[in-house]
Nucleic acid binder design. Structure first.
Lengths: 217, 217, 217, 217
DNA sequence: GATGAATGAGCATTCATTCAT
DNA sequence: AATGAATGAATGCTCATTCAT
């Protein structure tokens, strides 16, 4: 028998994407075998190669596709103007919502960068830099207007992204908090962090970024 | 030939630990082959089995050993009393310093939990809960004394840990910032986050934890 | 290269079966490596796994398949009625002929039982019990009609089967005796054994089975 | 620590012999690892090599030692003169008793011949031929005196040995039948087989050995 | 006589990948 | 678009054996 009745390209393609996403998120790229993937989809191993050239390309497609979606969605969500606070709030709400909706893709985009071959990695890292820059710009702007007080906006960028992205490591759809609640809570924390509070920080007086001697990669 | 002159158990054991740490941090547990590990150490594959029973046990030993070290170090560093701010500052400084000193172990302890078999995972997760609880207690205490204003201390715990632990994903020993600088910067951000700032948060008025309806795992 | 021209599943399967039979009969299951087997068949090791799930399953398939053949052949050969002597003659002739035709399979079915995992062993032992019972019934019947005189029909069953099955340990296709000759010789011995001969046995007067005190498993 | 208090050469040697016997009888020579053997004895693998040069030599020692014992015991038991019936009875009683007393050694001597390297095998086969010849001589003598009627004494030798040796495959110390009972039962069957019974064997008239055309290895 | 650390070859099994059908 | 049979390399692990201590 050549083709199972009812099977069809696009349907299979989507099934592979979904199964791969889940398997990689659960076991990791290296630990996922194409046997498993094929079995999950209900086809033979060889048939997978009608949908990608090799395992690495499959991973890259998954990650790149998600990064494109993420950027498009962020651009649609972001405020073109407004106060830094408003823009940071919007950024945070977007980021939380997106992580809650697609935790597997987001998780893979962080955890499987090391599984990408150099060229593919470079492409993805460039896209991620763009994303970080959008947050960085908001923070810089806020510092310039005096809305925010941050010792080092690069560190703050990394810190905020790490804090928000951590959500996808523990989020479960039917957990204690709704998406809206998570958005409010995390927005509150991010804004507090960004505003800083000079008086009390005796041990570590706030500094503008770049004011310190040593360096970060 | 049976034994290379000058070889010795403890020396080999430490070499295996170090090489394994580095390989797992770089390529991941699943992608690290014991052939690679043996080659790195300069012994035959079979000889590895004088030091662990199987690959999984090796990973577990690595993670468990590090968790024990981490707990011991934290307990030695933590202030038994003092204001919540002082204690949170101490916690943050400790956490940053530890992550900067042993980034590979720390990274593995986060990233390779999924590679642990159920029993081993349970043991490690229990240890991690303890660690989280120590931070959670500080935050609760601060909220009780009024030093901190946090909508949800469980979320704040996770957020702060994610923010701080993110350091090990980008930290490089000879980077732009010194350990001290990193400690100051991160302490500043963590304190700001914990203190909150009610007036300005129009969109998301601060709440005590537990005030929201839905749930989190 | 994916597939060698002219290769085909059923052909390969039979080649594996034949080569495995010969290797196991010669070196034993534990001593046969799948490398050897693959080399004998002329394929790569990995390709073997298109035909069985693991080495144990291969052994079980071989043994079980043979047991089924043996039972079917015995049932076709056995006389449904007739005197006990006629039926025992028929049984012996069949057994000798079968052992002479397929000595390897027969040998493996005896010698490699210990290599079967518990569940597989249980299945095979059950089939062997059936076979023994068919001989045992003939002997019991002969004792009842007075054709046979046997002190213990269970022991006689085991003794006759051991005697006949021993053939496969020394039989060589082009040996001194033809199959027909072997059948005649062994039938003669088996019948003599079954008939017994009371008068002369001074040291051990014949007894009916069950007449002795101690027990056998 | 170099030596465990209380350990001693001869004691260890006997422990190794016993453990090896049991392991080989249970799992087979190829499937027994020296790890297992050492563990069973309670020493390290390396220490085994104080007692044999390699695994093959260990097997050979076991088999050869047993064969020597067997021959010595048989020579002591056999009647130097007497009727063929008396001598065959004595042989059978001895053989049964020996198999019942040392079933593991006996079993290994049959089943692990194939694991012996050519030279070792030749030595053992020669010893076994001697043993077979002793039975063969009794049968020949009985045929010459007219006490026995056997179509082919070589076949009868193999048949009787197979029948008797089969005991070690099912014998259990606390079974249904005592050693004495087994001796009586088997002696009865062997004598009946040897005496034959000309009249009834219509299908296979008795022949003297060598009277048939084809050959046996 | 025994240990513990090592060797190097070998094991069964799985891997990603290919391709005639 | 899918299968089934194949490849060849790699995997984690075990093996018998060695030998300085």
């Amino acid at each position: 028998m050549a083709r199972i009745a009812g099977s069809s390209g696009p349907r299979t393609e989507e099934a592979i994407r979904r199964a791969g996403l889940s398997l990689i998120a659960t076991h990791g790229y290296a630990a996922m075998s194409l046997r498993q993937l094929a079995a999950e989809v209900g086809i033979q191993q060889g048939s997978l190669y009608n949908y990608f050239r090799n395992k690495q390309e499959f991973l890259f497609d998954l990650i790149r596709g998600h990064m494109l979606d993420l950027h498009a969605a962020l651009d649609a969500a972001l405020l073109p103007e407004g106060s830094a606070e408003e823009r940071l709030t919007r950024f945070t709400e977007f980021h939380v919502a997106y992580h809650v909706e697609r935790p597997q893709e987001v998780f893979i985009c962080y955890s499987e960068l090391r599984s990408l071959e150099p060229d593919n990695l470079a492409a993805v890292v460039a896209m991620r830099r763009d994303y970080e820059r959008k947050l960085g710009d908001i923070l810089d702007h806020g510092c310039a207007t005096g809305e925010f007080r941050l010792a080092d906006t690069r560190m703050a960028t990394l810190a905020i992204l790490a804090m928000l992205s951590g959500i996808c490591t523990w989020y479960k759809p039917n957990g204690r908090l709704s998406t809206t609640a998570l958005q409010e809570i995390f927005t509150g924390m991010v804004l507090a962090l960004a505003r800083g509070e000079e008086a009390a920080v005796a041990a570590a007086p706030p500094r503008r970024r770049g004011a310190l001697r040593a360096g970060v990669g």
